[in-house]
Amino acid sequence: MTQLALVIDLNVCVGCHACVTSCKQWNTSGTAGALVDINPYGAEPNGTFFNRVQTFEVGQFPNTQTVHFPKSCLHCEDPPCVPVCPTGASYKRAEDGIVLVDYDKCIGCKYCSWACPYGAREFDEERKVMTKCTLCVDRVTDTALPASERKPACVLACPSNARLFGDIHDPESVVSKAIAERGGYQLMPEWGTSPSNHYLPRRKTEIRIHAEDLERVDNPLKIDGQLPEHAHRDPGREDFAT
């Protein structure tokens, strides 16, 4: 069983909002119709977006980290928004696990948005139906596109490669490896929704400098035995070499 998903690397997201604008551009130009923009140039601009980048400050000054946090539909493996839908407009595709809304069946009762703990669904005030991230289903399944472009618009737009896309049920996929090797986690695990999208945590960037790195190997004094050998208390390079 395929489960397509995004893996978002919080370690490299720079909060540029390129995924937000590319998402809006792609999905507003698609066959499903434009994403509403109410008063876009006025004082209270408003509209439907499938993806947002939020910013959080973690820690107490001076030990703070700014975390940019992109949020879109997580395409849960057990999506709570699907069984509550009275019309069956909200559904999870069996072939690739994408959670979608059939805009022709949706009656706009908003009950599915109540049943999503992540606030991933947005009611479109013009079309009067519930909308959400489609994982660019019209891109990723389009065989007319070259294989390298069969990815969601947000993934292609990300300048820091913070968004990975693939099948999390395939242990050999880029996303599965990233989750396994870099501690990928799910949001709000307490509700048992099992989101498919995962986030990769921040990592401490550090450079390990060994004492021998600071020594000039061809120092003539050392060659002549006039400098004492450095006491190797720390593990040396060879101790890490595999």
Binding site: H17, V20, F49, R52, Q54, T55, F56, E57, E122, P201
Partner: peptide, 18 residues
């Protein structure tokens, strides 16, 4: 993120949404 002090600095938009 497991830290006792997290403050939101931006929700990603200013004009309100659904």
């Amino acid at each position: 993120i497991k830290h006792p002090r997290i403050v939101q600095k931006a929700q990603g938009f200013m004009g309100g949404s659904f």
